[in-house]
Every structure is written in C-alpha cells, then in structure tokens.
Amino acid sequence: MENYVFEIDHLNVWIENKHILKDICNLKIPKNTIFAIMGPSGSGKSTFLKLLNRLLELKKNVKIEGEIKFYGQDIFKIDPIRLRRRVGIVFQQPNPFYHMSIFDNVAYALKANGLIKNKADLINAVTEALIRANLYDEVKDRLNKPASVLSGGQQQRLVIARALALKPEVLLLDEPTSQIDVVGARKIEELLISLKEQITIILVSHTPQQAARISDYVALFYDGRLVEWGQSENIFTYPKNELTEKYVAGRI
C-alpha cells in the first residue's frame, strides 16, 4: 500500500444539505506523481481537494461519509494540524502575506509552529524552500522587500515556497495558474514537474490541456461524480467514458 498516498472509497460529501461529492469510489493517488483533477466548475473538484487536508471541515454544515486513507491511515483519525503540515495546499489566487517580507512569508509557518527556533536554521530552511520553488535567484537580493513587489507568477511561487517550507509530502494545488500570465504559468508547470521527484502533487486544473501537459494521472469529475481516472496518456487519447471524451474534446 506504500505506493498510494491517498486511497478514497465510497466517499460522499454534503455541504448545507447539498450533495456535493457523490459516491467517489476506488480512487487511488500514486506516490510521486502529478495527479490532475479536471472537470467543469461546480463539479466538486475544489471540494475534493480541500477534503484531503481536512480544510473542508472548517466550513459549517459539512457532512462527510466514506473512506479516505493517507498512507493507509484514516485521515479523520489524524490530528488535522499534523495532517495539514504533511499535506500543503496552494490556491487559485496568489495570496502571500502582503504585510510580510518575502523572507517572512516563507519563514512564517516555521516560526509560528515553533518548528525552527535557531536563526541560522531558519535562514537555511527559507533558502531551501525558495530554491525548491525555483524562486530564489529572482528574489535573493530583496528578501526583505514586501511580497507585494513580486509579479503574480512570482507571488504564486512564493506561496508554493511557503507551503514547501513545512516539507510536506503532498502538495495540493487548486487551479494554481488560472490567474497567472502565460510565462508565469509555464514556470509553475515546470516547477511542479521538478517537484514530483520528492513529493506527490494533486492539481485541480482549469484546462484539459494543462492536465495533459504535466500530469501522470488524471481524473474527471462531473456533477460531483468521479467519471473516470487513469494514466493521462490513456485518458487523453483513448478515454473509455463518453463523458470524458466529450469533456476533453470540448463538446460539453
């Protein structure tokens, strides 16, 4: 079971009595891959993503049934704070802490969580995270400038660095490039590819083309249901399900 990061079965989610995710069965997310989730808006893909690090439970009136295993362990039995340090998330809109410097943005979680107390260690950890997020060279001379001086694409990579600072095993990304210009988006895609050697990436993608470019596995969500999932090259050339065919070919 070591090969799967998440295993999801018989999953149902209701938010305020609305059935958002409907019987997601037998979905397994393999380790060290980029797993893309695509689907039209309102298909429940963001909800699904937030479920994986238990952010969804912050909302009111959420009812969850079914099974989600993280390395074989029931996630609902893991302390959410610990789980979230192992499963990071990045959202659509770049949301760095605008009041903090670039350095502090990355250092913040480490400091606030009391994970690193020594100044030298902190500098090392921040530098490493910025390097991993492929941002270090662009910001190394202005680490004390506020995050707002960065471009949208850089801000998004800063947010990724902020998440990477906690050394998560999984990184969830919710349409991370939809608000970013083409060049910035390309850099983020390249970054994700380079990251998958160390961590597992689950990406909600706003276009099938992006999912096709960078993902190893892909799942289609439609109207709260899991339509089909599998290896990307198969799904994009020989989808088994008619709905997948229609979605990727742009007939919906």
């Binding site: 952010l55 912050l58 704070i81 979230r84 340090r85 959202f91 979680a109 902020r162 906690l166």
Partner: peptide, 11 residues
C-alpha cells in the same frame, strides 16, 4: 487567510 493559516498547520 483563514484557510491559508490552517493549511500551514497553524493552531
């Protein structure tokens, strides 16, 4: 920042 904060494992 609520979700961001929690997502960074903050208390």
């Amino acid at each position: 920042y609520l979700e961001v904060g929690y997502s960074l494992g903050l208390t």
